[in-house]
Amino acid sequence: MGFDAMAAACCVLPVLVSLLAIRFVYVLWRSGQPLSGSPTAGLRCLIVLGSGGHTAEMMNVVTAVQKDRFTPRYYVAALTDNMSLQKAQVYEQSLIQSGEKTIKNAHFVQIYRSREVGQSYFTSIATTLLATLHAMWLVIRIRPQVIFCNGPGTCFPLCVCAFVLKVLGLGWSSIFYIESIARVKKLSLSGLLLYKLRIADQFFVQWPQLQQKYPRAYYAGRLM
């Protein structure tokens, strides 16, 4: 009995692992490819606001997107950042007042940060774990179809969790990362990771010299 179970496990486990590996490679390959077919309804968006200059750049993107295509919109900001969500709220309010056909379809969510400036590396392990679990919970709950992010660290666990859902076949999201205009010569850490790990479907930089260093990135002008 025990032997049979062991034997079964020995057979099933490698199969499962190989299936997962194949799926992983497929998702990696598929992620950079444009979607086929035209979406018939609005896409559920996760918009990660990174505080300060990052938020200002992201709000310029949000202002330029077609609101009927990118809806509903879930804005996410760090728990310690009390300015960003307020800016997004003011913007969404202005849309309603200007009489655009927007039903109340904006949501505002706060997220734990992996690491605060100056935090010790030891306590960072615990807070990173907490932030990742929280990110997973948010991604499962929201099931975004589109993720907009531009750093800093807040967006990384969210993107990784969204990627894991893709591998597990629990939801598909297109991840757009727009590196901050402050990065002229080198990518930020979160940008570099999302680029190298190929988690970002489309990766934008705002300076042509940076595009030359990272050929898979797109340069389509500046946001600011």
Binding site: P34, L35, S36, G37, S38, P39, L43, V61, A64, V65, Q66, R69, V146, S174, F176, I178, D201, Q202, F204, Y218, A220, G221, L223
Partner: peptide, 12 residues
């Protein structure tokens, strides 16, 4: 221009 590329990618 960034938004146009994103739209294209998504098939809009």
């Amino acid at each position: 221009p960034v938004v146009t590329l994103i739209n294209k990618f998504l098939g809009f």
